[in-house]
Design a binder for these strands. Structure first.
Lengths: 201, 201
DNA sequence: GATGATTACGAACGTTCGTATTATATTGCG
DNA sequence: CGCAATATAATACGAACGTTCGTAATCATC
């Protein structure tokens, strides 16, 4: 039982890397088996189907995301610091190319599966709703702490934060624009400033 | 000579629809041939390779984009109206599901090919640079017309507009959020207001 | 209507896909 | 150690993939 879980975990790490480049659909069992020096059938035995492999790969990414973005943000004091941590951790996650040579798998899969019904789509949508809900909650706490104006629309703000993240990922990866992060920080600062409660200086 | 161009054009329309759902890589010649009631080889003869088919399909999308987003915006008076038209035409394009049952092919391909070198990637990046350049130019004109503050950063503003568009596409498609457009308009209005030159009301 | 050029077809190529079955190593426990 | 459980491999399958080829049908022009 122990050995199996170990190789299975290393398979998933490699699968995550491969899928971030080729997409969860482009990921193939044969090529993945080559990368981990296993036979196709030996690898396949760990997962009952390709969809299961895709699902587990996605969940691996979601687990890593929770550990690298979520958890450290929750250790920040509630209010503005936590909102800022969520954002900057998210940005840092986009750049963590150790596991993600092809960019964030979750964002890639989001456009790949937006109209492909099934378990992967559902896990993706659930994860996204969870993330967005958590950001909304952090914003609400910031309102309670009087860091944000009381009429701040949590979901609207979350929507705009997502936009900044998506634009950063897009420009950095497709255009190779190294200054994308710089633009992201500027946009975020302006966005936060517009919702802070203190009137002028 | 004439007949060929006609069927080839109808192939590309169908290919555009299929690729918007399955991606340019997921698009297969056999299934496309079925959809247009042709033989695989007959269809293939129109394009020397699959990559060429992908390229032409993308260019079809880019041409449509230019006609539906670009051209009408250029008919608006320079300055703020043109910038607004570019944005709202872009949003409307995202919703035009006649040719794009699977969402905007260009955005989908952007994440699919961001780390897949080749002609498709290059065409994608070139198109994106062209679009962004045009928006920057429209913003510069708006500065000249004193609609925007003179210290407005054109590329930064363009970056943030892209973010709104991407978030809209994401929420509408993955989450099925019908209010995404509403959030987009609100975000855009706030963004524009922050850069307009008139101080207060 | 004949002629030459396009355009489309059907069959087959070799390869890869995901999956199932059957067999062989390897591991962990008593 | 030995035996059962687990883990990997070997082999094979039908289907689909992109591509090539030779040929039939259709088209445009004289």
């Amino acid at each position: 039982m122990r050995k199996g879980a170990r190789t299975r975990s290393s398979i998933l790490n490699e699968s995550l890397a491969l899928a971030s480049q080729l997409g969860l659909e482009g990921l193939s069992i044969g090529s993945l088996a080559d990368r981990v020096n296993m036979s196709k059938s030996g690898l396949f035995a760990h997962f009952g189907s390709k969809e299961d492999l895709q699902l587990q790969t996605l969940k691996q990414a979601q687990t890593l995301f929770a550990a690298q973005v979520f958890a450290p943000a929750l250790r920040q004091p509630r209010g503005l610091p936590r909102v800022k941590a969520l954002f900057s951790n998210w940005l840092a996650w986009l750049e963590s190319s150790d596991n993600l040579p092809g960019g964030c798998l979750i964002l890639a899969a989001a456009t790949e599966y937006d109209d492909r019904p099934g378990a992967v789509h559902d896990a993706l949508a659930a994860g996204q709703r969870e993330l967005r809900g958590a950001i909304v909650k952090a914003i609400r706490l910031a309102i309670d702490e009087s860091h944000f104006r009381p009429d701040t629309d949590g979901w609207q703000l979350t929507f705009e934060i997502l936009g900044i993240v998506l634009a950063t990922h897009h420009d950095r990866r497709l255009l190779g624009d190294a200054r994308a992060t710089e633009h992201a920080l500027k946009a975020f600062d302006r966005l936060i400033a517009a919702h802070q409660s203190l009137p002028s200086r």
